[in-house]
Simulated scan of single mutants.
Amino acid sequence: MSFVVGPFVALCDICQKPCLATVHGSYLEPDDENGPERYLRLASCQECGRGILLTQGVEETMDSRELTPPAVAWPDTTGSVGARVPAPLRREYEQARTCYQARAYTAVAVMVRRTLEGVCAEEGVKRRTLRQSLDTLQEDGKIDKRLVEWAAELRVLGNEGAHYTGSQVSPEDARDALNLAQAFLDYMYTFSTQFEEFKSRRAKRHRKES
């Protein structure tokens, strides 16, 4: 596995630019109901001295265990998604966050679009276009009209990022894309699941009382 042990380049929230950071210690967070296994590394910016928390996920393969590329978990310039989001979608979203931290804003838009495509694939929907797939999710009752509108805007932004037009995706659009993608994933896989579990518990309680 590729561990980050020496100085590495990270986007410092104080310096507002990529800086060298020094690792001071690490901790292996176990795989449990709160989330998947990952390595946390405490570091500091070599320019301003402020603390940085680096995270690397652990991926199981047929022959080995591999670490995902390092990403800054704190200070948290963009939100992370819940542990109930399927691992392939978390990887796509985390790559989008990594692009944002590297200030590759056009790449953020492309990765967010890939995340939407991944949601459709995870739900077994594959139409000719992404918009048609999203409409199918709505028809199946898996997402509501507002989420379709969010996803449609993210899809258009992703299209703009994927094609050479001479213009770049702005930092504000990239950040909004990440925030909307986070909300989309958490609605699909965290909040909806929690609501169904809530209804199930109430139904069981009512059956026992009746």
Rank of each mutant, 00 (worst) to 15 (best):
A151D: 08
L154D: 13
Q138K: 13
G124C: 06
R97Q: 09
A107R: 05
E92H: 06
E153W: 06
A109W: 01
V110K: 00
I143W: 09
G158W: 00
L137Q: 04
Y93I: 02
C120G: 14
N159Y: 00
T115C: 11
L147W: 10
V108Y: 10
R103P: 03
V148P: 03
G161R: 15
W150H: 10
V108G: 10
G118Y: 10
S133G: 09
T106Y: 01
R114L: 05
E123M: 09
E160M: 09
S133Y: 02
Y105E: 12
G158F: 00
C99Q: 07
L116N: 04
A104K: 10
V112R: 02
M111E: 13
R91G: 09
T115S: 07
V108S: 10
T136I: 03
S133V: 11
E160P: 00
Q101C: 03
G158Q: 07
R114I: 03
R97F: 08
D140L: 15
E123A: 15
E92F: 05
D135Q: 10
N159E: 13
L134R: 00
A152P: 01
G118C: 15
E153G: 04
T106H: 04
R155A: 07
Q95V: 07
R113K: 14
E122M: 11
D140S: 11
V148Y: 06
